[in-house]
Every structure is written in C-alpha cells, then in structure tokens.
C-alpha cells in the first residue's frame, strides 16, 4: 500500500536532492546541457558561490527577513489568537470569521497586490495615508534600498500569519478552564494569568511555529519576485531568489545554482531535524 508513496518520494524528492548534490560538484552550463556531459569540477561551484558577495548579501537578507517575520508572527499570533478567543465580544467573532482569508490568496497575487499598495506614484497605501492626513509627500516604500527589505516582510507576514494564529488558537482551547478559575480565586490578575498559565501552556505550539515558519521563511520567493525582483539594487536578494537567478537567467550556471540551493537545503534540514526531535518524539511508541 505504500508503494506509490515510496515511488513518489524517491522520484520527486530523494532523487532530485541527490542529483542536486551531484550537479553541485559538476560544471553545468547551457553548453554542457546541450552536449549532455557534465565535467566533474569538485568544490569549484561551492567556492564560487562562497566568494560571491551577492550570495552573502542574499544570506544576510534572508536572515534579517526570517528574524523579522518569525518574531512578528509569533507575537502577533499569540495576541490575535487571544483576541479571537474572546467569544463574548461580537467583533472578535467577525475577526475569527475573516482570519483565514489571507490563506486563500495566491502568494504571487499577494505580492502583486502589495506592489500596487506600495507603488510610489499610484500606490494605494500612500492614497490612504494622504486621505488620513498622515503624510504630505508620497513615500517610496519598496523602492528605497533602506526600507525595501522591511517592506517585503509585511506582505509575507500578512499571508502566512493565519496559519500561526490557527495553531495558537487551537492550543488555547486545549487549556483547562479550571486553571484560570483557580488562579482567579487565588487573586491573580489578567497579566499574571497570562504569564503563569497561558504562556507556559503555549510553549510547545510556539516552538512548533518558530521552527515551521523559520524553515519556510528561509525559502521565501513569490513576494520577492512580485514586489522587488531583488531590487532596488540588490537590497532584497534572498537565498531562493539567488539560486533562481543564478540558474534560470543568463549565463544559466546550473552547477552554481545547485550548489547555492544545496547550502540552503542543508540549513533548512538542520531546522527540520530539530523539529523532528522536538515535536514528533512522542511517535516512538
């Protein structure tokens, strides 16, 4: 019964990953592809990637992007999950109904919509801020190298936050009410109840979100493609964008692309192993 799964995992996951490793130590460009021969080149591709300042720029940007998105998502997810857990507030019920909406938006559409929102001359965000009287001159949100990287974190957080909120909200509902009632009898105020009961009970789910979101934010692609294409200059080059550009735009260096993608995969694999140890330990019956 597992044959189809094993075939698929082998053909579409394991084999390509191994083949990517193979490509990364061979010279593979368009000329080699045409001939069908990939000469062995040892660590040359890795050497060239590691010497490329653009690669380090992309790595630095990826780390900054990931740190900002993951930390914001955890804080916002806990806050908003607590908010929609207030069933006696009718606006909380409205929020709860709408909370999954960003999950429905295709990432590439999300990127384009935000690129319209951010647009310097025509953008919707500047229009809103003008109307509210908050700014007097248009702000170039995504076109300024100093702010572009921060600008692309917002759409990404907007799109991926529902997932984190849903996990925290599900965990909140698993906390026994008696704990809170007992704490109230003991005279604990809201902040104490949060610190002493809610937060410790959410510890595991926060760890899960931290790991999952870190792994996925490392590979961010669509929003970068739609909003900045790595620009202005190289201000928003991230790891996946680097591998994509090196490989699929001239001079199409597949070997270097595979090497850089393999470095990214190794970093994410390390995160995955932490996840396996932390979350699925209980499956060892």
């Amino acid at each position: 019964m597992n044959l189809p799964t094993l075939v698929f995992l082998g053909a579409v996951l394991a084999y390509p990953v191994i083949y990517a490793g193979y490509l990364s130590v061979h010279k593979v460009g368009l000329a080699q592809l045409r001939r069908g021969e990939f000469p062995f080149s040892g660590w040359e591709n890795y050497g060239r990637v590691l010497e490329d300042p653009l690669f380090w720029m992309a790595m630095k940007n990826t780390l900054v992007f990931t740190a900002i998105t993951v930390i914001s998502e955890i804080v916002l997810a806990v806050a908003i999950a607590l908010l929609i857990n207030q069933t006696s507030i009718w606006t909380s019920r409205v929020t709860r109904f709408l909370i999954l909406l960003p999950y429905a938006i295709p990432p590439i559409c999300n990127g384009l919509i935000w690129s319209f929102l951010y647009s310097f001359q025509l953008g919707f965000l500047n229009r809103i801020l003008f109307s509210l009287g908050l700014i007097h001159d248009p702000v170039n949100w995504a076109g300024n190298p100093d702010t572009a990287l921060y600008a692309v974190t917002v759409p990404y957080i907007w799109r991926t936050l529902p997932f984190a909120i849903i996990l925290v909200h599900a965990a909140l509902q698993g906390i026994p009410r008696e704990l809170y009632e007992q704490a109230a009898i003991d005279g604990a105020n809201a902040w104490h109840r949060f610190r002493q009961i809610t937060l410790p009970m959410l510890q595991q789910i926060i760890a899960i979100i931290l790991i999952l979101r870190t792994a996925f934010a490392f590979a961010v692609f669509e929003e970068i493609l739609a909003i900045t294409q790595g620009g202005p200059g190289d201000a928003t080059w991230v790891a996946a964008w680097y591998s994509y550009k090196i490989t699929f735009s001239p001079p199409n260096n597949f070997g270097m692309g595979a090497a850089s993608a393999f470095i990214l995969a190794l970093m994410i694999a390390a995160i995955a192993l932490v996840y396996l140890r932390a979350v699925y330990r209980r499956v060892q019956l």
Binding site: N2, T5, L6, L9, V12, L13, Y15, P16, V17, Y19, A20, Y22, L23, V28, L33, A215, F218, A219, F221, A240, S243, Y244, T247, F248, F254, G257, A258, A261, F262, L264, A265, I268, A269, I271, A272, L273, Y275, L276, Y280, V283, Q284
Partner: peptide
Amino acid sequence: LFLLQANIVSRFVPAIVLMIPLYIVMR
C-alpha cells in the same frame, strides 16, 4: 516510523532545491 520521519523531513525540502535537478531531468 521511518516512513513518517522521512515524510516530516521531506516537508521541509524547499522547492528551489528540487526544481534545478527536476528541470534538467525533465529537459
């Protein structure tokens, strides 16, 4: 159990790592 663990790790594989070799194979 091994299959489950393999699936958990596979879930993390970023698409870009697969796409470069898959492109060459499919080509």
